[in-house]
Design a protein around this nucleic acid. Structure first.
Lengths: 128, 128
DNA sequence: CCTCTAATTTGACATCTATCTAGGCAAGGA
DNA sequence: TCCTTGCCTAGATAGATGTCAAATTAGAGG
């Protein structure tokens, strides 16, 4: 049915020079998959996806926990838990400043994930 | 610390015309997050990530279950289960041909995810 | 009609996860 | 020193998830 749409992607995948979407290029090894999957898993939760977005879009590229908590109907410990998951996955980083803790996005990781899913673009151009 | 790297991303985010990385552009709404998260969750498992890659890279852009099962140290029902998850997420599609069932990738969905994570490129160009 | 192969469904089980309440720790101000 | 604010940790619990063995369906041939 939708097989007719595949050539477009595969054309990019076969491209020898700029080939950079492993997922569509060559079969992902078990090791690589074991490395990548936890990253996708981390953003595979609505709360964490929104947290990531809120942090990225917040003024100055960083947000304190109090800003984030107020955006959800969840308890503070729950938000804290999700932030921990994102941080352990390497998607965000944090720093305590006075009484507050600020979080910001680790932009390279997101770009890498995008490149892996995309057919080609976004690999080299975004990271730098 | 890594705040110095953000402006690049944000520059793209502020771009009024081509702005298409919601996650980095504007805070993701709960509804959108609830729609996107299951997709990331589906690829947030090493086995499913490899399955997706195996299918995409297989000759002809499609693979039968027997090809896939042999690549893992898992029982057939388990593979079947993961394929079902991927299919229900809309990432793959399938068709029975004789005694075998063939799976292929739904390329638009992957491109969309890539665009959402990427800072800009890959949004409009891949979908067509 | 029986059998063989390919794939899925069912049911069970152990593990993981999201969430909460209660309590603790750190920084700053009275 | 004591209180207040901001955030995290610990422990508990209900529900989701990954896996397998056993049973079931679907197609192709004897």
């Amino acid at each position: 049915m939708s097989k007719q749409e595949l050539p477009l992607i595969n054309a990019a995948a076969v491209d020898p020079g700029a080939c950079c979407a492993p997922l569509l290029c060559e079969p992902l090894g078990a090791a690589e998959a074991g490395e990548l999957a936890p990253l996708f898993k981390a953003i595979g939760d609505p709360v964490r996806l929104r947290l990531l977005s809120l942090i990225a879009c917040h003024e100055g590229g960083e947000a304190c926990v109090c800003d984030l908590t107020s955006a959800f109907d969840l308890s503070a410990p729950t938000i804290s838990h999700h932030l921990k998951v994102l941080k352990q996955a390497g998607l965000i980083d944090s720093e305590r400043r006075g009484t507050r803790v600020y979080y910001w996005i680790n932009p390279g990781v997101l770009a890498r994930l995008s490149a892996i899913l995309g057919s080609r673009q976004g690999a080299g151009m975004v990271s730098a």
